[in-house]
């Protein structure tokens, strides 16, 4: 339950110095590294990795932006500069498998890096959690009980429509014995939180409503206890929406990794 990170997070540099190789590299991402709210998710992903005994490492200060927001904003130069620099680092460490804490990093490394020489097996953290549950390595016991709690899951565009991953995050919630409710617009028909395509970094264009408000109203229609997210940008937009609607006391926005960590008392 505590947010404190009582474990050492190994970096690639340290591991290499010891002559070791990790099973999987955890790509934290910019939001996961710097955004206070997303940092909690990052730490919970580490706790899960540690708990199941997977040999993992992070790049630490050697990590840099994947270039995703630059690419969506139209700056292909900057994207490819970032991509090639990152690929050089990843290839130097002989990385084979990557788990990301962000659907944008996931999409970019999985789909757009191979053409530039970066070929890795890439999974999103909700897929890792699903795999661990399927292998019996991760359950939902020893921690907070979500029994009977109403949870609605918001599909991040770059995980759902972008890459067709709808089941993994839901599988991670299904083990909780909670009550899963779907919003009207879900899965391939899911509504964007409003942050994609570099919108996260600018004010919205003139309109009659903010996209995250439209989305949060739909989420609140399901009268949930928890809105589950799988993306740090969605997390920001949804949390802001809940705040704007004065629902802070009734509804929590939590990442799938946070929910999993809590359910296991990590």
């Amino acid at each position: 339950m505590t947010e404190k990170l009582n474990i050492e997070v190994p970096t690639m540099a340290e591991m290499m110095a010891r002559g070791e190789e990790p099973e999987i590299l955890f790509w934290v991402g910019c939001a996961g590294s710097y955004d206070e709210r997303a940092q909690k998710t990052t730490r919970d992903i580490c706790k899960i990795l540690h708990h199941v005994g997977i040999k993992y490492a992070v790049l630490g200060t050697e990590e840099s932006c994947t270039g995703d927001p630059a690419k969506r904003a139209g700056n292909e130069f900057l994207f490819q500069m970032q991509a090639m620099t990152n690929i050089e680092v990843l290839n130097a460490y002989n990385i084979k498998k990557i788990v990301t804490g962000c659907p944008h990093c996931f999409n970019t490394i999985k789909n757009e890096y191979p053409g530039l020489g970066g070929i890795y097996e890439v999974i999103h953290h909700t897929q890792l959690i699903q795999d661990l549950i399927n292998d019996g390595k991760l359950k939902a016991e020893g921690g907070e009980s979500f029994k009977g709690k109403k949870i609605t899951y918001h599909d991040p565009c770059y995980l759902g429509r972008g890459n067709g991953i709808y089941e993994a995050p839901r599988a991670a919630l299904e083990v909780l014995d909670a009550q899963l409710v779907e919003m009207k617009r879900c899965k391939s028909n899911g509504l964007c939180c409003g942050a994609g395509g570099a919108q996260m970094f600018k004010e919205p264009e003139k309109g009659n409503k903010d996209i995250n408000i439209e989305r949060i109203e739909e989420a609140l229609e399901t009268s949930p206890n928890i809105i589950a997210a799988g993306c740090p940008f969605c997390m920001t937009m949804l949390s802001d929406g809940v705040k704007m609607k004065d629902q802070n006391d009734n509804v929590k926005v939590l990442d799938i990794a946070e929910i999993t960590a809590r359910a296991n008392g990590l």
Binding site: C30, S64, K202
Partner: peptide
Amino acid sequence: SISSMLGNIENNGAPWKYSPADRFNWA
């Protein structure tokens, strides 16, 4: 704001104005 985001990525390797040296502080 998009231009400053792009500038941040170019200079600090992150879309926000944070130092690359602080990237691992979360741990």
